[in-house]
Amino acid sequence: MRPVFLVTPALVYLVVLCFIPDVIMLALSVFEYRDGVIYPGFTFEHYVGFLTDSFYLNILLRTLYLAFGVGVLTVLIGYPVAYFLVRGRSRFKGLVLMLVLMPLLASVVVRTFGWLVLLEPQGLVNQLLDVVGLGPVTLIRNYTGVFIGLVHVYLPYSILSIMASLSTVHPSLELAAQNLGAGRVAAFRRVTLPLTLPGMVTGFALTFALVLSAYATPRILGGRTVHTTATQIYDQMLFLLNWPLAGAIAVIVLVISLVVLWVTSRVQGKLVIA
């Protein structure tokens, strides 16, 4: 059998159930929408509306801001963990790796629920803050909670990206730098850090893109007061039934994600995917 025929079932499947629906969504996003009814047409009003209406624009900007912050923080706190997992010689390495991979085993919903337990007004975190005299602080139904939850949810992606990058840097390079007189900090800063920049950028870009379409965490920890692009897509789809607008937001999210991932891929000369 010709190899190409083996690919056909999967390809047909994806065309019918993924690519055609995407095209339909794209088409719907330029249809007209009046009083809950969709009319065929060609208009950019939903895009223009979303990008000019201060309510929606605010949601977009806040989501981008959130995505940026989460991306940066996951890389910053993911780095020491990745370093430990690649370079460490501890016997706890296996355990830590399991801990890091845990998110791949537990649903986002489950982990975010854990944060709800921790962050609620009288939860453990507030109890702790109270002890040191800093509490109580409102940590749920606002951006703070969403931010913490998202960092936790997407941290593994950054860790794994950095690990991938770090494992291509031979440990002898850092030793060579020390051997030539560089202190541990200098050796890291001059050699390891620049060489793992690609992994950090990948981790950031992945996280950034994923936050734009993250639904469960903002919903659970943000309640109905925090809106992100993803919750907007959902609300427009299922509550307001404004499918053209939902489609327009989805396309905008899609485009931003693709641009971020595409730029990253171009910079690094390889494909970046979740």
């Binding site: 031979h170 002898s172 390079l173 030793l175 060579a176 730098a177």
Partner: peptide, 8 residues
């Protein structure tokens, strides 16, 4: 070093 360990 054995693999030279030149900074790439």
């Amino acid at each position: 070093f054995q693999q030279y360990a030149l900074f790439p």
